Amino acid sequence: MERARTEWLRQLGFEQDVLRRDAGILFAVHSMQLNFRQPARFNDQLFVRSALHKMSGASMQFVQQVFKDETQLCEAMVKVACLNAETFRACPIPDFILTEMQCEC
């Protein structure tokens, strides 16, 4: 799920290492609620669907689903906080990122 959120950001044009270096921010999981439906097995090829559910000033919430073929294995509600890269304290999501994300919500 972490990789899927990273790819979601990348699709919007944001690389996390660049955000840390140039904007001084990073994103970290604050909390997660998981519902396991079926197990995955070793070497299963999995697909993760990520959708932005809602945003606030310093956080965003994703619905993420893990599939094997057409079978849903897991669903998660993931709250991600925007943090100052130096202090690791919550900070507002920069406007240039919010603008792109609001198109997705």
Rank of each mutant, 00 (worst) to 15 (best):
Q72R: 13
A40P: 00
Q72N: 11
Q72M: 11
L34E: 12
H53M: 14
C74V: 06
M60K: 09
V78H: 01
A51E: 14
R37M: 14
N35I: 06
V80I: 05
M77Y: 04
R41H: 09
C74S: 14
R49D: 07
R49P: 00
M55V: 09
K79L: 12
M55H: 03
M77V: 07
Q38A: 15
R49S: 07
A76P: 01
P39T: 14
F36H: 13
C74K: 05
L46T: 06
N43D: 12
Q45T: 15
Q45F: 09
R49M: 07
G57E: 14
K54N: 10
C74Y: 00
Q64N: 08
L46D: 05
S50A: 13
D44A: 12
E75Y: 01
N43S: 14
A51W: 08
V48C: 03
M55N: 05
L52K: 06
C74R: 03
M77H: 07
M77T: 08
V63K: 10
D69L: 05
V78E: 03
R41T: 10
P39Q: 10
Q65T: 03
R49Q: 07
V66N: 00
T71H: 11
R37P: 02
S50M: 09
M60C: 10
Q64W: 00
A40E: 05
M55Y: 02
R37F: 06
L34I: 13
M55T: 07
K68F: 02
K54L: 06
E70K: 15
Q72T: 09
V78T: 05
G57M: 12
M55I: 09
F47Q: 15
Q64P: 00
Q61T: 15
A58D: 09
N35K: 15
D44V: 13
A58G: 11
A58T: 12
M60S: 09
Q72W: 01
E75S: 06
T71I: 13
P39Y: 07
V63Y: 06
R37L: 14
R37N: 13
N35L: 10
M60Y: 03
R41A: 06
E75A: 04
L46A: 04
Q64D: 02
F42H: 11
R49F: 01
Q61H: 11
S59I: 08
L34D: 13
T71Q: 14
M77F: 05
Q72A: 06
C74Q: 08
N43G: 04
F42R: 12
A40V: 07
R41V: 04
Q65C: 02
